[in-house]
Design a protein around this nucleic acid. Sequence first.
DNA 1: GCACCTCGAGTTCC
DNA 2: CTCGAGGTGC
Length: 789
Amino acid sequence: MAAPAVAAERAAELRAELERHNRAYYVLDAPSIPDAEYDKLFRELQRLESDYPELLTADSPTQRVGGAPLKEFPPRRHGVPMLSLNNAFEAAEVEAFDKRVRDGLETIAAIDYAVEPKFDGLAISLTYENGVFTCGATRGDGVTGEEVTPNLRTLRCIPLRLQGEGWPALIEIRGEVLMFKADFAELNARQRERGDKEFANPRNAAAGSLRQLDSKITASRPLSFLAYGVGAGGDALAVKTHSELMDQLAAWGFPVAVERAVVTGSHGQLEFFAKIGMLRPNLPYDIDGVVYKVNRLDWQARLGFVSRAPRFAIAHKFPAEEALTVVEAIDIQVGRTGALTPVARLAPVFVGGVTVTNATLHNDDELRRKDVRVGDTVIVRRAGDVIPEVVAVVAERRSATAQPFVMPDACPVCGAHVVREPGEAVTRCSGGFSCRAQRIQAILHFAGRRMMDIEGLGERYVERLVEFDYVHGVADLYRLTLADLLEMKLRADERDGCVPETVKAGQVPTRWAENLLDGIAASRRPSLARLLFALGIRHVGESTAKTLADWLGSIERVRRAPASLLAVLPDIGATVALAIADFFAEERNVQAVDDLLSPEVGVAPADEHAPRAELAERLGWSELYAVLGVPRLTPVRARQLAAVIDGATLAAQGVNGAALSGAGIPGEVITALADWLQMRGNRGLLAAVATRRDELLAALPAVTAQDATVAALAGKTFVLTGTLPTLKRDDAKAMIEAAGGKVAGSVSKKTDFVVAGEEAGSKLEKALELGVAVIDEAELLKLLEKGVQ
DNA sequence: GCACCTCGAGTTCC
DNA sequence: CTCGAGGTGC
């Protein structure tokens, strides 16, 4: 049944009124009607929307209660990256900032700055399309965040529809989600009553509440939002200064900091800093400093950015809170690479919002520089407000008997001797794979989220699996059975002397073990890049693994590639190349990888395909152009290009537009090629490939037996006839053969394809007669790339 | 050869 | 987050 017009009208009215009261309550902090009255209107709207579902809109206040739980947060790429700010801690640094700004603007006049407190919360971006809130995301790494729209919808102080007018079709509002101190105290009291875990500080509470997959939970948490800027769509606004922009945001219905102001020069900045410092204990929310931004937006644009931070803004941070505590012990941790890291075990101390019990001392040099000894009283702070750091030792409190700490000369776990390479800061255990700690860490790395992503395989289980010898290498994970896991648990419980209630009662819980086995089984098909990263090759992290996967395409090629080949790939130099080649030269590693890939264990990359390497292996310049990944440079165009110019010349002389267009290469390809050469590193890459092409092609391993069976044209017979538009006959023959196909001289019923060009003669007739498929050059190239379906 | 940037590795707490 | 090391451009 369609909604009557009166219902639609009433719903719109209710939405507007409820949002108005919301705004009065949450943004202006001045309730406009009694709660009971609000509830009545709210329920009326809910009823209307459930009677006539078509009346339900995304911006309806009823949507603030949360919806169905999500499985995960989808990633969201920010239109304009969310940058971080540079930090200043001292007045001198603030003065230096002001000077840099004036130098940059070539003026000696005092600069006006928009200033405001720096909220201690989570940076968020809110997208409004035609004034309606459509998408909200966390900052993430600044480029890509997580979409948490349903959660943000539940925040009453985030307008679901912009008030007033003047907004562009698309605008992205930026600000901070945080929890007021009073709300935090109340929430914790509630958590305590219910026996739930309390949060350490408002920031953690806000982060934990926002990152709930179930938005109903977020809806029950007292989160607030404060806007401080705009992202995409900002340049469409009429405002000329940051302070005007903030006024505009307030007019649209966003809460903004009431403490914001405009000050002049570094003197004004420091005055504001001092004032906010005094107010800090009485502010309703936590702040960790103040932010100064050049007020004029055109000047902001002129100053621009240095790598990841704007040149027109800076965060002036309050000094990190410090506390005194006692070093109870200094332990040595052994990492995945065998690195020995001294860690100070501290008497628990509350600092910067959390209780700190450990602090890394990094390495031998650092330890000696600070001369931390067991029993010392030390000053601890949270560096960058996250990682605890021992700042200094309180010398006068040191006992006369305290001994300097010395790095052990044997690994505390396996007893192997330790080495410190000259010029390196870290001390390493030489035990390698025979060191239990390194094995445990290697397996933990393997199972990690960005590697094989084995759900449920945490530190506890890995430690036990290795300790009780159920798992020696990573491949053993895939051989575990339910019985193994239950037996292991039993042995672990016995050793720890704790027998769970359920076991005493005669039951054996198996759910966890089943889940773990599921998690392990589900990890058998990683992407090649993840698998390479998971292997834990030195110097091969996420990004290098991706480079290897992109360029070499199969694990076979990676493990057989000589260092000289690897070193030509982008961002891989001699050190990294050697580390990779060395890894695969080690018998133990080769066996471990073979084991992992064996049919019995069944791990295999899901995406082994090597468009670049396969082409490069069998072909010359034209494909090298194509494999380099220049936009718009299709294989056909690349072949045309190769006929005119080789890579060495291109790298040395750049793009000669006139010559190329004379050779029939389209303008868009020339532009794309020129752009590509302009980009960081591309010219160097081309030059490197150019000078060493023959060496590289010779070094690339031949197509393996396995590859041959999956080759694009395996077992197919081709006959060539006529003149092809861009390929020479011999080239085409070589390409087909390299892809596993055969080229015959005459057409028969065994022929699979006839490739016909200009002036094709009797062979074409014969093909038509026998009903053999006839294709042209373009279709052949497609087959070469995609294979015969 | 130096300056700059990116990536890898280690670490903490919730 | 921070440090150090490796890679690359100038």
